[in-house]
Design a protein around this nucleic acid. Structure first.
Lengths: 135, 135
DNA sequence: CATAACCTTTACGTTAACGTAAGGGTTGGT
DNA sequence: ACCAACCCTTACGTTAACGTAAAGGTTATG
């Protein structure tokens, strides 16, 4: 036990390929302070944690968050939550995010329903026009 | 019956206030071709349909869609769906959107769960530190 | 009839989030 | 030793989605 097992690491282009983004974007997230890979010489080396962090960033993007918002959310997780006074502040921020996510859920459900309805109508129309080929 | 009842209309600033956006943004959506209010003189006059359209746009924005994407979605609804060949194309677009929305739903659920967990931890810590005031 | 509170168009400015070279090291294979 | 395929930094360019004046018409009210 207690062996030092080499953890798997990733190059920047590996991650870019895996998550269908670009190396430039990933470097941009780093500039922005969202991710801090290690280095081997000048090359960036991404740990499993770094990889997870990138996934977190991209997930945020997919649901329309700005990098600033994503940073806020990530900072929530990192907080040395203990300062009592700050805790209230944290809980408030969390509540706000929850409200926002709730709204988004609702928005997406609405849109999904509309799209489902639309598809129904189109499919129905297709059926009737197909069976009405004869006069 | 068949009386001509004056439908309620809205001014641009009314809508801006109601939906917490700006007149500039609304005009921008118009420039972009997303909404076409009537005019009374030079003033824009928004019908109920126009108002609904604006809501649609803002909903799209909230879940991270670009104006281009929102336009695509709106165009789906407007389509003179009947041209047989085009129908397949439409159904494909709809399917793509559905996939995207599904992914977003999943993303939001994940994030919501993480935030819930975080709140739990913070709240627990708060409780224990509150009950541990004595030594 | 003047003043506030609206509205208009035109147009340049700003910010975020990268894209796109340019110029140059590093590393694995033949 | 050399080429391809990586990687790096620096830095200017681009696009979307408005923001922000500027300059001026319109309408309700005292």
């Amino acid at each position: 036990m207690n062996e030092i097992v080499e953890e798997k690491t990733y190059s920047i282009s590996e991650l870019a390929k895996e998550f269908d983004t670009t190396t430039r974007a990933i470097r941009h997230y780093e500039e922005y302070g969202l991710i801090q890979p290690k280095r081997q010489g000048t090359y960036r080396v991404y740990s499993h944690k770094n990889r997870t962090r990138l996934q977190l960033i991209l997930r945020g993007k997919r649901i329309g968050f700005s990098l600033a918002e994503i940073k806020e959310i990530i900072d929530l997780y990192q907080f040395p939550h203990g300062e009592e006074k700050q805790t209230e502040f944290l809980l408030n921020k969390i509540e706000l995010r929850r409200q926002q996510l709730k709204q988004q859920l609702h928005d997406i459900h609405s849109m999904m329903k509309e799209i489902d309805d639309l598809e129904q109508r189109i499919t129905q129309q297709k059926k009737s026009s197909t069976s009405n080929t004869s006069t």
